[in-house]
Simulated scan of single mutants.
Amino acid sequence: MKNPAVKFWCMIVGIVIGIIIVLGGALTVFLNQPRFGRLPRSGERLERIKCSPHYQNGKFRNLHPTALMTSNKSKLWGILTFLFAGRDGLLPDIQIPVIKTDLKVLIQDSSDIMVWFGHSSYFLQLSGKHILVDPVFCMAAPVSFVNKPFKGTDIYKPEDVPDIDYLIITHDHWDHLDYETIKQLKNRIRKVVCPLGVGEHFEYWGFDREKLVELDWQEESVLDNGFVIHCLPARHFSGRGLTSNRTLWASFLIETPSRKVFMGGDGGYDTHFAEVGKQYPGIDLAVLENGQYNEDWKYIHTMPVYLGQIAKDLKAEQIVTVHHSKYALARHRWDEPLKNEINMVKEDSLNLIVPVIGQVVRLDHVEEK
């Protein structure tokens, strides 16, 4: 007969093992939900990835060495600190201004326009084509209680958007690629433009490969007569689950019959902005990241000190900033990015457009080329 103490500890060990098995199974089921997408594992897409000059040792790399965390904190510790530390000033204490524009009526006028939906989601009508960038209308995180939108800022839903010629996705993070939004828009999207590897998510979600325009940095595609999209570098990272950097992140520049628009996506400052400005002179509008920055991850998001420099590097005629005013994903005050914009105008004399969510920005007053 076993010693009672031994029996007790055997029981405890058995319980612990059982809990680990149950939790592991639950995590596996959770991570295998369709909304997590799917990473490239085989086939033509994986072969393209392996041939990319930006892919080394099983992961995509930035142009220059880029530490994800620049403090001595781990990524997990940074997440836990954000979730459980004090939240004074992170959320607005009043409902911020928003406008509910009827986009389907708006597009009856063929003018070049932009409508920002908060954070990094926006709609462009350029020379009659409808372009939707990084739409997140449902969930900006794997679970609904994380990354909740500011009160009153989630007034736009997938059904509010007209049929889309080009859906442009800059990278596969949850706050830029929302499965539920994509699922609801699926039958109204003509073409998807995304960085290399991100197309795997779309195929997994039922999109025909013929609809996908999947590009590496410095590749381009003719979308239609007079419409060319260029895939350009960004200094960031990617991933929707436990594995990072198996898909590429990017900025994009679209050339249309009327203008050039740069879509910066997410990312910290680096030499690529000046290179883009030289390679594509005459950018009419640049949409730049401004928000969710922190010294602890200063290389992968745009720190305020560099915002004006990026605009100068690109030599853009007009600037709109995004990545703010809807979610609190960093420790700065919710309205600090708006103050950064004001300072940028004062210090750098830039032509900055500062719309509220849903406001129609008309681009046609810029001289057509």
Rank of each mutant, 00 (worst) to 15 (best):
V198S: 01
R188T: 06
L177V: 03
L167D: 11
F117R: 06
T170A: 11
L212M: 12
I164S: 00
G118D: 11
M139I: 01
S121I: 10
C138R: 12
H173S: 12
D154L: 02
S121Q: 10
Y156A: 03
L124A: 01
W116N: 12
F207Q: 06
K191R: 15
G152W: 08
M139H: 09
M139V: 00
K186P: 07
D208P: 09
H173K: 12
I113G: 05
P142R: 08
N147D: 12
A140H: 11
D175W: 14
S111Q: 12
K186Y: 07
S121A: 15
E159W: 07
E180Y: 14
V213G: 05
A141E: 06
D109K: 12
A141R: 07
G152D: 09
I189V: 15
V192L: 00
I168H: 03
P162V: 00
A141M: 09
S144Q: 08
V136A: 08
E200P: 10
P158K: 01
D208C: 03
F145Y: 12
I182Y: 08
M139D: 11
G128P: 07
G118Q: 13
V213L: 14
I169C: 03
Y166P: 02
D178A: 08
D178F: 06
E203C: 10
W205Y: 11
T153L: 09
D163Y: 00
L124P: 01
V161T: 09
V143H: 01
E214L: 02
Y204H: 15
F117H: 12
F207Y: 15
V192Q: 00
G206T: 07
I189L: 10
P142G: 05
V146G: 01
P149T: 02
T153G: 08
G152F: 09
K183A: 14
V136P: 10
E210I: 10
F137P: 05
F207H: 08
V192P: 02
D208F: 03
K151V: 12
K191L: 15
G206A: 05
D134H: 02
A141F: 13
Q184C: 06
Y166C: 07
E203N: 04
S127T: 06
D163Q: 02
S110V: 01
V133R: 07
I113Q: 10
K148G: 00
P158N: 08
V161M: 13
D112V: 09
S110K: 14
N187D: 14
Y166D: 03
K211G: 06
P142V: 01
L167Q: 07
Y156V: 05
E200W: 07
K148I: 11
V193M: 11
R188Q: 12
M114I: 13
G199T: 02
